[in-house]
Amino acid sequence: MSSGTHETWVPPTAPPDREAATRLQEWLDAGGTGGIDMIGLDLSGADLSGGVFQESWFTDARLVGTKLIDVDLYRSDAEGADFSGADLTRASLVRANLDDAVLRGAVLDGADLVKASLYGVDASAASLRGTRLMGASLIDVDFRGSDLSQAIIQENTFKVIVDETTKFTGMSGTLFGPVQVISREGNKEIGGAELERWLRELGGDVQVLERRW
């Protein structure tokens, strides 16, 4: 995305919330460069697709149902933000802080989450088809009902919660477990060779690594 994008970009649909819309407009009027402070604001229902928000602050913001297709959130802080039902298709979330965020039902197909931090995230029923997760920290992430088909991982910490409806078809790469599996028979934690076999049975091509202390 070119450096001039900031000056020409206009949000397809401004946030319905007046305070959030005013903050966004002030940032655009100032040239739309540098990080934007959206801490605690309500951007729900907006269409911010194509926006460049590198090193910005979306901490505790509400982005429920917000369209964020192709946005650039490189190194942004979205800790505790609510992205329920948001569309983050092909978004760049490289090195973003998403700790304690809500991604329930969100679409992150083809998104780039390389080296992002996801601790305590609710990503249940989310779609992460073809998502790049290399080097991302996935700790206590709820992936129940989520679709991780074709997702790419590389030496990821993958201490997540999944269930019988979580999809792993075509997921590839390497990870560190263990994974907590919730099924009708109860909860079970699996790691190592057992986890690797289990993922392969579900169509994944994943190598489970052993930690060396």
Rank of each mutant, 00 (worst) to 15 (best):
L43S: 05
L43F: 15
L43N: 12
S44T: 07
L48S: 08
L48R: 08
G50W: 01
G51S: 04
E55T: 15
E55D: 15
E55Q: 15
S56D: 13
W57K: 15
W57C: 14
W57S: 15
F58G: 10
F58P: 07
F58L: 15
T59G: 13
T59A: 14
A61R: 13
A61S: 15
L63H: 13
T66M: 02
L68S: 12
D70P: 01
V71F: 10
V71N: 11
D72W: 10
D72A: 09
L73N: 03
L73K: 04
A78V: 04
G80D: 08
G80Q: 06
D82P: 00
F83S: 07
G85K: 09
A86T: 11
A86G: 10
L88M: 14
L88D: 10
T89F: 01
R90M: 09
S92K: 07
S92L: 06
S92A: 06
L93N: 04
R95L: 02
R95K: 09
A96S: 13
N97M: 00
N97K: 08
L98D: 05
L98G: 03
L98Q: 04
D99K: 12
D99I: 00
A101Q: 12
L103K: 10
L103V: 13
R104W: 14
G105Y: 05
G105E: 08
G105T: 01
G105V: 03
A106H: 07
A106W: 07
V107H: 08
V107Y: 08
V107P: 00
L108P: 05
L108Y: 06
L108D: 10
L108I: 09
D109R: 14
D109C: 10
G110T: 03
A111T: 09
D112F: 04
L113Q: 02
V114Q: 13
A116D: 03
A116Y: 01
S117P: 00
S117Y: 04
L118G: 01
Y119K: 12
D122H: 14
S124V: 13
A125F: 14
A125L: 13
A125K: 14
A126C: 10
A126M: 09
A126S: 15
A126V: 05
A126E: 03
S127E: 14
L128T: 08
R129F: 11
R129C: 08
R129E: 13
G130F: 03
R132D: 15
L133V: 03
L133G: 05
M134P: 00
G135T: 04
G135H: 07
S137Y: 05
L138S: 06
L138F: 03
I139T: 11
D140F: 05
D140L: 07
V141S: 03
D142I: 04
D142H: 05
R144A: 03
G145I: 10
G145S: 09
G145Q: 09
G145H: 10
G145V: 12
G145K: 11
